[in-house]
């Protein structure tokens, strides 16, 4: 396994950074979860398929939108950005890119914070759970965890 541990151009033998590959896979999965919720928000699907929880209540609550924009759309765009950056970050020549690393860490920090806020709302304000929102929050925690090695590299660069 190899990581983006250098600010130098890729060494010829440097493989794709495993943490960025993990972020790309997770972001793609998160994208489809958010896309499903967004499709529901704009009326393209039937009722949300819920085995447990109460997605209908969560999606009908005022917290499911930021002004006129559905939170699910924010999720779709966020996951697209994370996927694009991580996919770019595993291409030869960019595997040690510090700006991509910084973007991955900071955007996943923003994502995990917002997911935490939404989970708090579900637990204590809306009093209902949507399993797709919970799945998305778990994906964001995993993405954030996978982005932590980027922080180490950023620290090395700063020192």
């Amino acid at each position: 396994m190899s990581e983006s541990g250098s600010d130098q151009p890729d060494a010829p033998t440097l493989g794709p950074p495993m943490n960025r590959m993990a972020i790309a896979v997770l972001a793609l999965a998160g994208f489809f979860v958010a896309l499903y919720l967004f499709a529901h928000n704009i009326g393209l699907t039937g009722p949300i398929v819920c085995g447990v929880g109460d997605c209908g209540t969560v999606q009908a609550s005022p917290y499911a939108k930021i002004g006129p924009i559905p939170v699910s759309l924010v999720g779709v765009l966020g996951y697209v950005a994370l996927f694009s950056a991580s996919f770019l970050g595993i291409q030869p020549g960019r595997r040690a890119s510090a700006p991509i690393g910084a973007f991955l860490f900071l955007s996943s920090l923003g994502g995990v914070s917002y997911s935490g806020y939404l989970t708090f709302l579900e637990a204590y304000v809306i009093n209902a759970w949507c399993q797709y929102c919970v799945i998305s929050a778990i994906i964001m925690v995993l993405i954030f965890s996978a982005s932590l090695p980027e922080l180490r590299h950023m620290g090395r660069r700063a020192s």
Binding site: S2, T13, G15, P16, M18, M21, V25, L28, I90
Partner: peptide
């Protein structure tokens, strides 16, 4: 190392396509 990197990339592509 190059072969291992190529193998990681292949596995990554397969997982990505599956997802």
């Amino acid at each position: 190392a190059r072969e291992e990197g190529a193998s990681d990339t292949n596995r990554f592509n397969q997982i990505l396509i599956l997802v």
